[in-house]
């Protein structure tokens, strides 16, 4: 029990920030991101025994996080991108600074991408290695590279057009 707890603590400390970023990029608001991150780690805890023989813990945690995010949209009330964007801006209005405004704008831009693009780009932004992203998303590395190239271009365009507004 104690070694299980230690392993879980290490997994939590090593991965919680990136899982949170993934959930935040996907949902567009910090409360939902916190909920989804916790839900992800509850599932990780429940599956610790299955992880013991896996060399790449982070891949499995990401896979659970992605599937948790996908099922979140399944149950969440449909919200328009505008509503998401309002949430994002509200989350950053407590201590507005130029950098925070830029980050809010970045999340707003990510929210305008398709669901799978949001998942892939948040991992790219967090510098997750490409083979790992391909493994998590369940697509070939070749196809992933094409997608990433397209998403980077799309995100940059959306961000810059949002910045001009």
């Amino acid at each position: 029990m104690s070694s299980q707890r230690q392993l879980f603590q290490k997994l939590f400390e090593d991965n919680s920030k990136r899982v949170y970023h993934l959930c935040y990029g996907y949902t567009g608001d910090s409360d939902s991101a916190n909920d989804l991150m916790q839900e992800t780690f509850i599932k990780v805890w429940q599956n610790l025994d299955k992880f013991r023989n896996q060399s790449q813990f982070s891949t499995w945690i990401y896979r659970i996080a992605v599937n948790t995010c996908l099922s979140y949209l399944r149950t969440a009330k449909r919200r328009t991108t505008d509503e998401l964007n309002e949430n994002i801006i509200e989350n950053y209005t407590e201590e507005p600074s130029e950098k925070q405004e830029q980050i809010a704008l970045l999340y707003k831009s990510i929210a305008q991408l398709e669901e799978n693009e949001r998942i892939i780009i948040t991992m790219v932004l967090d510098e997750v290695p490409y083979p790992e992203i391909a493994d998590v998303a369940g697509i070939s590395e070749g196809n992933l590279r094409v997608k990433i190239h397209r998403i980077k271009h799309k995100l940059t365009e959306i961000y810059n057009s949002n910045e001009r507004v």
Partner: peptide, 11 residues
């Protein structure tokens, strides 16, 4: 910009 962001999980 992404990597320098402040909001971390508050859990």
């Amino acid at each position: 910009l992404w990597q320098g962001q402040a909001p971390d999980p508050n859990v």
